[in-house]
Simulated scan of single mutants.
Amino acid sequence: MTFPAPLTGVIPPVCTPLTPEREVDVPSLLRLVDHLVAGGVQGLFVLGTSSEAAYLTDRQRRLVVETVAGHVGGQLPVLAGAIDMTTPRVLDHVREVTAAGAEAVVVCAPFYTRTHPAEIARHYRLVAAGSPVPVLAYDLPVAVHTKLPGEVVLELAAEGVLAGLKDSSGDLAGFRAVVSGARDHPGITGFSVLTGSEVIVDAALAVGAHGAVPGLANVDPHGYVRLHRLGRDGDWAAARAEQDRLCGLFGMVEAGDAGRMGASSSALGAFKAALWLRGVIDCPVTAEPQVPLSEAEVERVGGFLTAAGLL
C-alpha cells in the first residue's frame, strides 16, 4: 500500500513528555503537538527514537498514539513506529497503533540477530501484508546493526510493499541512490524519501529528498520548516545559512557529560530540557534507565537556545 503522492515537508519525530513518575504527560504532549503544528510541520511521527519508544511500555505507546491522533483529528498525517525485534512482534504493534489512529507505520529491519537481505525483504513483505496502512522503512543501523540495502528498498517500493523510507543512517551517497532510483523507476509512485538527519537536511533536499524527520524539529520546528521551504524554492545560499544555524543549535546534544551518560541520554535529555526551558513541556525527565542532565548541563542547553535566538 502506497500514498497517492509522496509525503513531503518536515515530519518531526515527536518527543514523549513524561511526568516525574515517568508516566506519559498528556497535557504536555498536547502542548508539544500544538507547538509543532504552529511551527508549520506537515506531519507527525510518534514512537520513533526521539519519542523514546524503546523505553515505553505497550500501554504508554498506545496512549501516545491515541493522544496525538485524537488531537490533530486528520489535520496532519500521523505516522507511528512499530519497532520490535521480530516480524510477529512488529505485527502486534501495527495492530495496536493503527487501532489507536496511526495512518502509516514506520518499521525497522529485524534485530537482535543479524539478518540477511532476503530476510529483511521477507520481513517487510509480511508486515505490509498484515498492515491496513502504508509501511515506511526505517533505516537505523545504529540501533539494529543492519544497513538497509538500497536495492532492497527500491525492489520493495516497486512492488508496492513500501510507501517510503526514513533514512537515519547518515549515508548521503546511499540516500541519493535511493532518491534517484525511485525517481527513475517507472513502477514506483507515491514513494517518500525522508532524511532523519538534523545536520544535512539542505544536502538531502538538494539531491531530491521529499522531506525531513529531524528530532531537533521538536525544539525549533519553524527553523526546519523554513529550511525546507528555502530548499523547495531553490534558494540554496539561504538554505545553507539556515542549516548552519540549526547545526549550531544541534550542538546541545553534547551537553551531557560523556563520562557518565550515553549519547542518547545526552541528546534526548537536551531536547526535553530545551522544550522545558521554552515552556512547552512541564518536566524534562527522560525514561529509565537513561541518566538525566544535571542543572549545569540544562544551563548549557539554555546557552544553545539563546545563541539560536530561541530564548
Rank of each mutant, 00 (worst) to 15 (best):
G234E: 05
L47P: 00
D244V: 14
E299Q: 15
R176T: 15
H185T: 05
H35S: 00
S294N: 08
Q243V: 09
A209Y: 05
G262A: 04
P88N: 06
Y224G: 01
G160C: 08
A270C: 07
A255I: 09
P284Q: 12
R183M: 10
L246V: 11
L268G: 01
V193W: 10
Y112N: 11
D184K: 12
V142E: 12
P289A: 03
V298G: 05
G248Q: 14
P13D: 07
A258T: 13
G43M: 07
Y124N: 02
W236L: 10
A307C: 11
Y112H: 14
N218T: 11
A143Y: 14
A238T: 11
G231A: 03
H71I: 10
R89V: 10
Q75L: 14
G39E: 01
L249W: 06
F3E: 08
V291C: 00
L63S: 00
V37A: 10
R226M: 05
R125Y: 11
S264A: 14
L36K: 03
I120E: 10
A100E: 02
M1D: 05
P186M: 01
P289T: 10
G170W: 01
V301A: 02
T67S: 11
R245G: 02
A206T: 10
P117D: 05
S131C: 08
L148R: 03
H210Y: 10
V127H: 00
Y124E: 03
E155R: 14
R89G: 00
F250Q: 14
P284E: 10
A296R: 15
V135K: 02
L126T: 15
E155S: 13
E66I: 02
A241S: 13
A173R: 14
V107Y: 04
R125M: 08
H185I: 09
M252T: 10
L249Q: 09
V298T: 14
E254A: 15
W236Y: 09
V153N: 03
D34L: 02
W236P: 07
L91N: 12
A38W: 04
R232F: 08
T146F: 11
A129K: 14
Q75E: 14
T86D: 06
P221R: 07
F175R: 08
E297Q: 08
G262R: 04
G190K: 08
D233P: 08
L29C: 00
R95L: 09
W276L: 10
V179H: 05
S131N: 03
D220S: 13
G231H: 07
H93N: 12
S28K: 01
A273L: 08
G303A: 09
P88E: 04
A287M: 15
P117K: 12
D220R: 11
D139V: 07
S266Q: 05
A38H: 11
A173T: 15
R125Q: 09
R61P: 00
V94F: 04
M261F: 01
T86E: 04
A239C: 09
T87L: 06
L249I: 10
I11F: 05
E299N: 13
G39R: 04
F271V: 15
R59K: 13
H145I: 11
I83Q: 07
Y112M: 13
L275S: 04
P134H: 09
S192W: 07
E159T: 05
V26R: 11
R232Q: 15
